[in-house]
């Protein structure tokens, strides 16, 4: 195989040249893919900023939605609705998700069929369409057995169920990255399983869990589909004052503005989109920073 060394040194020989061209074309195509993705993203962001910045004023967050005066209307009720629903989502999904992940990673015997079934079930739930969680919450919480109506709590439950599998999966990954030796060291000292989990494993996994949870929360905050089914589309011009209050959220408010095709409504919609994107990108940035900051301490 003398040609092996010639490949790079002498690329001008017959077949090698064709290889070189094909190779360059292939690399060029890969570049093109990435360029297209980047162009699309930056084009979108540019459009949002350009169209949204005009109405990104104080009115946006201090005024309520209006069907009559879009020029000065805001989205305050939706912004506060997003905070309320997001808070409930976090309060439900994070403890449940982390607890389930701790069970699967620290306690469960993976050889048992029921634990494998739980695992398969969670993997599937992570890919169930968001709108299905809306149907579930509609059937059990809004109407049906609980029947609390189309209120903040229902929205929070719907989004919590939606991101629960995501939190379980990312928390498991964070727990798995804590070295076995830490657990062994603790157990060998006579610590119980829970002492080991609570005092050693969970603290060591906090950065990973936080990163995953923030990303999951940003997904919940941007989600509209399940909330449409649990009554967030009501036209609400007052701020929610509790978990049983009527509500709307930012993404749903944006959806509500779609049929209004007067320019003033479009400007308002783009300003709301810009506001939503800024919040979500900030959350993403925190998550990415956390991940880079605390990656692999051992």
């Amino acid at each position: 195989m003398t040609t092996a060394t010639l490949t790079r040194a002498n690329p001008l020989t017959g077949g090698r040249r064709r290889d070189g061209i094909a190779s360059a074309v292939f690399a060029g195509l890969l570049w093109l893919c990435l360029a297209l993705i980047c162009v699309f993203l930056f084009f979108m962001l540019a459009v949002i900023v350009q169209k949204g910045v005009a109405r990104l004023d104080l009115n946006l967050i201090t005024k309520q939605p209006s069907k009559i005066r879009p020029e000065t209307a805001g989205v305050q009720s939706a912004l506060l609705g997003t905070l309320w629903v997001g808070g409930i989502t976090a309060l439900i999904a994070m403890p449940l998700g982390i607890a389930a992940a701790v069970y699967l990673e620290e306690y469960a015997n993976p050889a048992k069929w029921w634990n494998r079934a739980i695992e398969l079930n969670i993997q599937n739930l992570a890919a169930v369409p968001a709108v299905i969680y809306g149907i579930l919450t509609l059937g059990f919480i809004v109407r049906g057995p609980v029947s609390i109506g189309a209120v903040v709590m229902a929205g929070g439950v719907a989004l919590a169920l939606l991101i629960l599998p995501v939190i379980i999966i990312t928390t498991r990954e964070a727990l798995r990255s804590v070295p076995r030796e830490i657990r062994d060291g603790s157990l060998a000292l006579g610590a119980t399983q829970w002492q080991t989990t609570w005092r050693q494993v969970l603290p060591a996994a906090v950065p990973g869990i936080a990163t995953g949870s923030i990303l999951a929360m940003s997904r919940a905050i941007g989600e509209a589909a399940p909330l449409i089914l649990v009554g967030a589309t009501t036209f609400v011009t007052f701020n929610p004052d509790g978990v049983l209050s009527k509500y709307t959220t930012l993404p749903v408010q944006i959806y509500n503005l779609v049929p209004q095709d007067r320019q003033a409504f479009r400007d308002l919609a783009y300003a709301a989109i810009l506001l939503l994107i800024v919040v979500l990108l900030a959350m993403n940035a925190v998550a990415i920073w956390l991940r880079n900051r605390y990656q692999r301490r051992w």
Partner: peptide, 19 residues
């Protein structure tokens, strides 16, 4: 087992101090 491990301690191959 907790009682067993409390009375019979163990030191591992790789030093594994807690963080």
């Amino acid at each position: 087992v907790i009682e067993v491990r409390r009375r019979i301690g163990m030191v591992f191959q790789k030093p594994n101090p807690f963080p």
